[in-house]
Structures are given as C-alpha cells and as structure tokens.
Amino acid sequence: MKSLERKAEKYDHGIKLLTFGKLPKIKQAITENYIEPNVKLLDIGMGTGTFTILCAKKGAKVTGIDFSDKMLEVAKENIKKVSLDENIQLIKMPIINLDKEFIDKSFDIITALLCFSELYSKEQDYALDQIFRILKDDGQFILVDEVKPKKFGKKVLYFIIRIPISFINFLKAHISTNPLKDLEEKIEDHKFKIIEQKLYLFDSLIFMRIKKRLNNGG
C-alpha cells in the first residue's frame, strides 16, 4: 500500500473497511495464540504499529521495520500512548535492504501482515530468502495477506463486493491493493512448509503459519 504513504493517519481506518473489520480480529487472535512473553519478534512492514503494540503488550521483544517515514511517525505516536518503548525497536528501512541488517537465525517469530501484496514477484522471492536466513530453525513465520479467491463462485462474489469498496477506499484514503497469486507454491519453493492455513472473507484474506523445512526431514 505504497500509495497510502501520504495518508498514513487514515491507513488503519481504510484497512478496517477493506477487510470488513476482520483484520483487527485476526491480529488479536495471532497475539493470543502464538505470541509468548520474551520471544524475539520481527514485524515486517509494521505500518502504524497496531500489531506491534499488541505483541509488545504480551511481553514480546519486537523489532518493527517499515520504509515509510510517515507510517513510522504515526507508529511512534501510537507507541508513546501506551508507553511500551523498552519492548519495541523501530527501524526505518525498505524490505529490499533486509540482507544488510540482522544476523542469521536471530528471530523466533517473523510476521508480515498485508505486506507481501505490496511487493512484486521477485521482491517476494528475495524477502522469503531473507526471512529463511534470519528465522531460527524452530521459529515460525506468520503471514496475513490478500489473495485472489480460487473457486469460481467466490471469485464472482469477491469481484462484486470488492470493486465498489476498493473504489471508495481509493478516493478516501488512496489505498489500492494487489492481491497475491500462487502464494502456497512460492512458499514451498523457498524451503518453507505451511503448517496452518485459514481463509477469510470469501477466501480473499489468508492467514498462514509457516515453518522452515529442514534438510533432516524435520
């Protein structure tokens, strides 16, 4: 959602509208089920920091990265409000610089919420390679993103409902989205395995829990 950069303060609202209020619930569910105190977590494309704050409240040590100055400003304000500064570290960097930061196998959990759909195909390959590098062997990668529905009926439904909402959103908040295709295959190609997968909103929003596929069969 690069085009949204100029309207960062409207981002959360726009996303809530686009996902029919589903995303905040998914964020809540992820924090409750998979985040434990003192895990090292990397939030790629943290945006306004809502998810980062939820994780930090649970006691995780969070590093958030985003390329947009304005998003980070909003995030900083949000973090100030809840005074969780010691658990959160913000870094301004684009995903394409992941190879210059972070040492190998240094994170327990890596999350990317609505961030992969902003990348073009080869950037996604690059990001998956880098995530594989910095994730611990027993760590997990949590991905939430928009996908194109596969079943025909749902495709039609999705098309009918989404087009007007996208249009309103584009006018209001400059949000435009680019749903992913063939995500599962791509993830399997990068030595990962999907251990849990859920679909929401006529199969247009995907939640995935992904682990490394190690050579010794584990």
Binding site: K2, S3, E5, R6, F67, P94, I96, N97, D99, K122, E123, D125, Y126
Partner: peptide, 15 residues
Amino acid sequence: GGDFTTDSVISIVKT
C-alpha cells in the same frame, strides 16, 4: 509523490 524512489531502484538492481 513517493512512488518512484531510491528504494525502487535498489530493489530492481538487487532482484
């Protein structure tokens, strides 16, 4: 407007 940036160039050169 912030769509065609230094990051865009870094991205395409790397990938």
